[in-house]
């Protein structure tokens, strides 16, 4: 690990200003992803700004009936909150499907959204990777691509977004609240938060330099039946090969988002109109234009079958 200087942040605005001012600065919250990457020198920050002391660890009701989730609310606490279990069960289910008990106790809401891909070549500093070293090439295109993405990808990068929680947040149309280095605040719709790789896979989010996530706001409860179905290589403590998050209403309408198939949580509102026609019709629209590799083409039928299982369960 490269050495670094360390400070405890005093306020969100000061933290954002410091992060923009100090070269090589990074925020650290739970640290479960960042420290892993620092040990491998995939991440080499020169300065860490510890934001854990900022009072961003609360859940509070919003005036419109929604719920504001502080950026530092731990994954365990978010999944265990009575309001989340009752009104946003897809979010609780997605959180509980991810990582291990120990990691969920440490990982934060904002950190989960911002976690980096688990592509083996991103992790291996001996291999080319455009996300880690822009311009060096993508080893995964001709390499081990079974867990990786097949839609929203580019010739520069086929890394998949690893988060379960983010898929539920996208399904719910959450908003990401931030403070910028100049102290101004803004709300980024989750649909615009994660960027597709294009020619610059090193840029993964809409955040400006120094910009700090302070909360994620959930809309008023949507009702309906909530599902988060995750398919993985072992029954627990593994990343999704494919996951389907869905909220289905009694009248047959609903929402669907996918995990494990794209560089960001994958949802196309236009595909949801096809829900009454069944899983095949929805999958065809959701994954239209997909460019799978030989190794991950299995994910297309797997999405359809997983969605089919969810729809069957909803019909009881």
């Amino acid at each position: 690990m490269k050495s670094f200087t360390y400070e405890k942040a005093q306020s969100p605005a000061e933290a954002a200003a410091a992060a923009a001012r100090i070269p090589g600065a990074r925020f650290i919250a739970g640290g479960t992803n960042l420290l892993d990457l620092m040990k491998l020198e995939v991440e080499t920050p020169a300065h860490l700004i510890d934001v854990n002391g900022l009072a961003l660890d609360r859940l509070e009701p919003l005036s419109d009936g929604g719920l504001r989730v502080g950026a530092l609310v731990r994954n365990t606490d978010l999944a265990a909150d009575a309001r989340v279990r009752r009104d946003y069960p897809v979010l609780a289910r997605a959180l509980l499907a991810g990582a291990s008990g120990q990691l969920r106790n440490k990982a934060t809401t904002a950190g989960n959204l911002l976690q980096r891909t688990r592509c083996a070549y991103f992790y291996d500093t001996n291999q080319p990777c455009n996300k880690r070293v822009p311009g060096s090439g993508c080893s995964a295109l001709e390499g081990l691509s079974r867990p990786l993405a097949l839609i929203g990808v580019s010739r520069a990068c086929i890394a998949s977004h690893p988060s379960d929680m983010a898929v539920a947040m996208r399904l719910l149309d959450a908003g990401v609240e931030t403070v910028k280095a100049d102290g101004s605040r803004r709300l980024i719709p989750i649909a615009d938060f994660h960027r597709l790789p294009g020619d610059t896979p090193q840029h993964e989010s809409a955040l400006a330099p120094g910009e700090l996530v302070t909360a994620v706001s959930l809309p008023p409860p949507l009702g309906g039946k909530h599902y988060y179905r995750k398919v993985r290589d072992r029954a627990s403590y593994a990343f999704a090969l494919v996951s389907v998050a869905a909220i289905l209403q009694p009248d047959g309408s609903g929402r669907v988002a996918l995990g494990g198939v794209a560089p960001r949580p994958w949802r196309l509102e236009s595909a949801e109109a096809a829900l009454p026609l069944g899983a095949r019709a929805v999958t065809e629209q959701l994954l239209a234009g997909a460019t799978p590799t030989q190794q991950n083409a299995f994910k297309i039928p797997l999405v359809q079958r997983t969605l089919s299982a969810v729809l069957a369960e909803a019909q009881g």
């Binding site: 490269k2 050495s3 080499t44 020169a46």
Partner: peptide, 16 residues
């Protein structure tokens, strides 16, 4: 694979 490491990764930094 040669050239895969970022140029900055080798720079020494004093322990803190």
């Amino acid at each position: 694979v040669a050239g895969a490491q970022p140029a900055s990764a080798g720079r020494a930094r004093a322990p803190v």
